[in-house]
């Protein structure tokens, strides 16, 4: 006995997730172009770990493997996490972060659809809290002073922690543009002088700005394919621009331009891929507006005043907590009822 309707639109969870993964490709391509192929190793590692952890947890929780392993949600988590951490991270860092995200943040809360927090962001938060030192080893973009490792050398470092004798980790890696900005501001340098440093490009960091643009392009594809609604990215980027712009206008020496905020760190990735995650996000349109605006405010606050260089992951987690409340507060008017729901 099955209830109507007997037809359904040709959409599935698995296909939606796959399209989101597909939308990450331009950003990853930029990443490889500017920073070398190490990121592909992380993504592969994260994918394998994600699927293995998912399978293990499903087994432990007595759930069928096939429908959940093919829903691509674990894969998406793995990719997001790999993109959030330094490409030259040791293998165990990727594995620990992904496994924690899937096992604890996803399955201990009930698996697909029930996790209040974005598993990838939880994985990221755990890593940056537990292994902050490893999380600062960001690759220097090509074309900048410093040495570029060959792919086998990169593999050797990722899996064995061994660097060629001629180089040190310090020569290979650098602080992110956001981190550099923060430390230099801390030392009392004005923004315009900091921006003249070699790691910065036209919009934000050299290389990283192009990666952000790549993610933005992927986001536009998702908007076009109606996988995400426009509210989240537009409100998020808009609010970030407004707050950063306001402070930049008032005190341009201490506050960096809003475009810098857009194209550095995980802002673009967040706007299109993290804050649009339906599972941890609000369900109402009004709720999404509040959620995105709040996330933007938190991102800016953490970047400007917080203890960590980037604030996207923490903004996502903090806003995730507020979702039930936001949803309760923003229930829309129902057909045939007055605004107050009576």
């Amino acid at each position: 006995m099955w209830s109507s309707p007997f037809i359904s639109a040709p959409a599935s969870v698995s296909q939606i997730m796959l399209r989101v993964i597909f939308a990450m490709v331009p950003g990853i391509a930029m990443y490889v172009w500017f920073f070398g192929p190490a990121i592909l190793v992380s993504i592969t590692l994260a994918s394998i770990t994600a699927l293995a952890t998912e399978a293990l947890m499903l087994k432990l929780r007595n759930r069928p493997l096939k429908p959940f392993l093919t829903d691509n949600s674990a894969l998406l988590t793995g990719w997001l996490l790999a993109l959030s951490i330094p490409a030259l991270a040791p293998w165990w860092l990727v594995v620990v972060g992904t496994a924690f995200g899937i096992a604890v943040a996803k399955h201990l809360y009930g698996g697909l659809g029930n996790n209040p927090f974005n598993p990838a962001m939880v994985g990221y938060a755990v890593l940056i809290i537990s292994f902050p030192a490893h999380m600062t080893h960001w690759l220097t973009p090509h074309g900048l002073e410093g040495i570029v490792l060959s792919f086998p050398d990169q593999l050797n470092y990722i899996f064995h922690g061994i660097l060629p004798a001629s180089t040190t980790l310090d020569a290979l890696t650098t602080a992110t543009p956001l981190d550099t900005l923060k430390t230099q501001l801390h030392l009392g340098l004005p923004v315009n002088e900091i921006r003249d440093m070699p790691i910065y490009g036209h919009l934000a960091g050299k290389g990283t700005e192009m990666v952000a643009i790549g993610f933005g392009l992927g986001g536009l594809y998702m908007l076009y394919a109606r996988i995400i609604s426009w509210h989240t990215p537009v409100i998020y980027l808009g609010t970030l621009f407004a707050i950063a712009g306001l402070f930049h206008l008032v005190d341009p020496a201490s506050y960096v331009a809003p475009t810098f905020h857009w194209f550095s760190g995980a802002a673009m990735l967040g706007a299109f891929f993290i804050f649009t995650d339906p599972v941890g996000g609000p369900t109402t349109i009004k709720g999404r507006v509040i959620y995105s605006a709040g996330a933007a405010l938190l991102t800016w606050l953490i970047r400007s005043y917080g203890g960590f260089p980037d604030g996207v992951a923490f903004a996502a987690l903090l806003m995730n907590i507020c979702v039930p409340l936001i949803d309760t507060w923003t229930q829309p008017k129902v057909f045939g009822r007055k605004g107050d729901g009576k």
Binding site: P132, A133, T136, H137, T168, L169, T173, A175, T183, H186
Partner: peptide, 15 residues
């Protein structure tokens, strides 16, 4: 050492 001095530091944490 990063600033040209004599003291060691750990990569990623100079402040």
């Amino acid at each position: 050492k990063k600033d040209g001095g004599q003291f060691d530091y750990m990569a990623g944490a100079t402040i």
